[in-house]
Amino acid sequence: MKVPLILLEREPKSVHIMATLHYERRQRALRDAYKLFQQAEQKEHELVHPSLPLPKEKKITRTKKQSIGEQLALFDQQTLDELKWIRGPKLRKRFVSQLSIRDIGETRLVMGEFVNIELVGQVAVLTVAENNQYIAIVFDRSFIEESFNRQYLNNFYVLQPYIGKPFTGVGIIRPGKDIGELYCSIQYGTDFRVDNLNLVEIAYKG
Rank of each mutant, 00 (worst) to 15 (best):
V200I: 13
V15L: 10
L119K: 11
D140T: 01
Q98F: 10
V200M: 15
R28H: 14
D81V: 07
F156V: 08
R10F: 04
K177V: 04
F114T: 00
E41C: 05
T79E: 11
T107S: 13
I104W: 06
S51N: 10
K64W: 05
I104C: 06
E82Q: 07
Q160S: 15
E145M: 13
S97F: 13
E201D: 08
T107K: 07
I101M: 13
Y162D: 03
S185Y: 03
G112P: 01
F192C: 01
P89I: 04
L126K: 02
Q160D: 08
N149Q: 06
K177P: 09
L119S: 09
A40C: 12
E118I: 02
E118Q: 14
P55H: 03
V200L: 12
E70K: 04
T190Y: 00
K177T: 02
S147D: 14
Q39C: 15
K64M: 07
P161A: 03
K58W: 15
H49M: 08
N155H: 07
D191P: 07
N149Y: 04
I17A: 07
D32I: 09
V123M: 02
Y157E: 11
L159Y: 05
K177M: 06
G121W: 07
G206H: 09
Q38F: 10
E9Q: 10
T107A: 09
A136R: 01
Y34S: 08
I173A: 02
L36I: 05
E106K: 14
D103E: 03
Q77T: 10
K177E: 06
Y162G: 05
P55G: 14
V120M: 01
C184M: 06
S51A: 13
E145D: 11
Q77W: 03
L74Y: 13
Y183G: 02
E57Y: 06
Q122H: 04
M1T: 10
N132L: 00
G121F: 06
V120Y: 01
T79P: 05
A124T: 02
R102T: 14
R31M: 06
L80F: 08
M18H: 13
L119R: 13
E113V: 13
K43N: 15
F114R: 10
N131L: 01
E44Q: 15
I172Q: 02
G69E: 09
Y162C: 04
Q160M: 14
R193S: 08
L36A: 15
I202Q: 04
I117H: 10
Y183S: 03
G180P: 07
T127Q: 08
N116F: 13
L36S: 15
I137F: 02
G180R: 01
P50M: 12
Q160C: 11
L72A: 09
E44A: 15
V123S: 02
E82P: 00
R141G: 00
E118L: 06
G69M: 08
P89G: 04
R102C: 14
S142V: 02
E11D: 09
R108G: 00
K13Q: 08
L30R: 06
N131F: 00
S100L: 01
I6A: 07
K205Q: 08
D191N: 12
E130S: 09
W85V: 11
F75R: 00
R94F: 09
R62I: 12
E44R: 15
